[in-house]
Amino acid sequence: MHKSTLEQWSLLNEVVLRGSFASAAESTHRSQSSVSYNLAMLQERLEVTLLETKGRRTVLTPAGEKLLAQVRPLLKAFYALESTASAMRNGERSRIELMVDSILPREHLFSVLSEFQRLYPGTQVNVTEVLETQIPDNSQADVMVLSQRQPGTGRGEWMMNVDFVAVAHHQHALHHLNGAVSAEQLAEYPLIRIADHQHFSVLQEHHQGEIWACSTIEAAIEAVMHQVGYGWLPETRIQSALAAGTLKMLPLQQGVRRVTALHLLINNEIIVIDAQLQTLLDLMRNKAWI
């Protein structure tokens, strides 16, 4: 038989966060005597002193700090379990499948997910990233943010543009040419592209010169940073390198900037857009303008 309960540890956590038994009792809608009794029983059964008084605050002892640190992940998991059960009871979704193009700015994505989690803690959002050149299997996705509208990807709308800029390492030979760089001069150096291997041959057919394909944006950025070649990279992902002067925009005769549109889509098979889906869609739209 266990000597302690999650309820007792939860009360201990509240006392520490609030700084007193009275504040913890108020936040948990209990009497102060109930809180005191439960924590007294917890310490008695463990035979360890967990709390002590310093000034006007009730704080953890060193032993209490060590034990509560181990319990807090369990409390968090238990709260999440109860939130999921509450969501299921209220008819809310327990999960949303979100598919996004890898060029979607991370700050946009994580800002949306953080706000959604705050609003619907019982609903899990599973994120799958795909490359622009891929034709994704979107049959299992509820919401999609894609650069290409493939047949059957769902109904949707334009959401935002992602800016790409032509760059190379500041010591790359392309930055030491006289005047604006021409297409013929670019063809003498490897182009770093973000693409899957299935589309590599297609890329080569439409480009004069050598192409090195990377399967992730991070790998493409690293390749350009190490002077493997030049490339058009998402501006938001390389802002710090541009500001530091490590990467420099190429002085091209034309085409230094390119834009890729991202579309916000919802699966065609979803007939009724519930509250969680609508909230996720609204957050995706609204955050695009911040």
Score class of each variant (00 low, 15 high):
His2Cys: 06
His2Gln: 13
Leu6Glu: 07
Trp9Glu: 02
Asn13Cys: 07
Glu14Met: 11
Val16Ala: 05
Ser20His: 09
Phe21Ser: 00
Ser23Glu: 15
Ala25Lys: 01
Glu26Leu: 13
Ser27Cys: 14
His29Cys: 03
His29Lys: 12
Tyr37Cys: 00
Tyr37Ile: 02
Asn38Gly: 00
Ala40Met: 12
Ala40Tyr: 09
Leu42Ser: 00
Leu42Asp: 00
Gln43Glu: 15
Leu46Asn: 06
Thr49Trp: 04
Leu50Ile: 05
Glu52Trp: 11
Thr53His: 15
Thr53Trp: 14
Gly64Thr: 06
Gln70Pro: 00
Val71Pro: 00
Arg72Cys: 02
Arg72Ser: 03
Pro73Cys: 05
Ser83Tyr: 05
Asn90Glu: 10
Gly91Leu: 15
Ser94Tyr: 13
Ile96Pro: 04
Val100Glu: 03
Val100Met: 07
Asp101Val: 03
Ile103Gly: 02
Ile103Ser: 01
Leu104Gln: 04
Pro105Val: 09
Phe110Gly: 00
Val112His: 10
Leu113Ala: 05
Ser114Leu: 13
Phe116Gln: 02
Tyr120His: 15
Tyr120Met: 06
Val125Asn: 03
Thr128Trp: 01
Val130Lys: 04
Leu131Ser: 08
Leu131Tyr: 04
Ile135Ser: 05
Asp142Gln: 11
Val143Gly: 04
Ser147Pro: 09
Arg155Ser: 11
Gly156Ala: 08
Glu157Asp: 12
Met159Val: 05
Asn161Ala: 12
Asn161Ser: 15
Asp163Gly: 04
Phe164Asn: 01
Phe164Pro: 03
Val165Gly: 00
His169Pro: 01
Ala173Asp: 02
Leu174Ile: 01
His175Asp: 00
His175Arg: 09
His176Asn: 09
His176Glu: 04
Leu177Arg: 14
Ser182Leu: 12
Pro190Glu: 01
Leu191Asn: 06
Ile194Asn: 05
Phe200Asp: 08
Ser201His: 13
Val202Glu: 14
His207Asp: 00
Ile211His: 03
Ile217Phe: 01
Ala219Pro: 06
Ile221Leu: 09
Ala223Cys: 12
Trp232Phe: 12
Arg237Pro: 00
Ile238Tyr: 09
Ser240Lys: 13
Thr246Pro: 02
Leu247Met: 11
Leu247Asn: 04
Lys248Phe: 02
Pro251Thr: 08
Arg257Glu: 01
Arg258His: 07
Val259Leu: 10
Leu262Ala: 11
His263Arg: 11
Leu265Glu: 08
Ile266Cys: 08
Ile266His: 14
Asp274Arg: 14
Asp282Met: 13
Asn286Thr: 10
Ala288Leu: 07
Trp289His: 15
Ile290His: 15
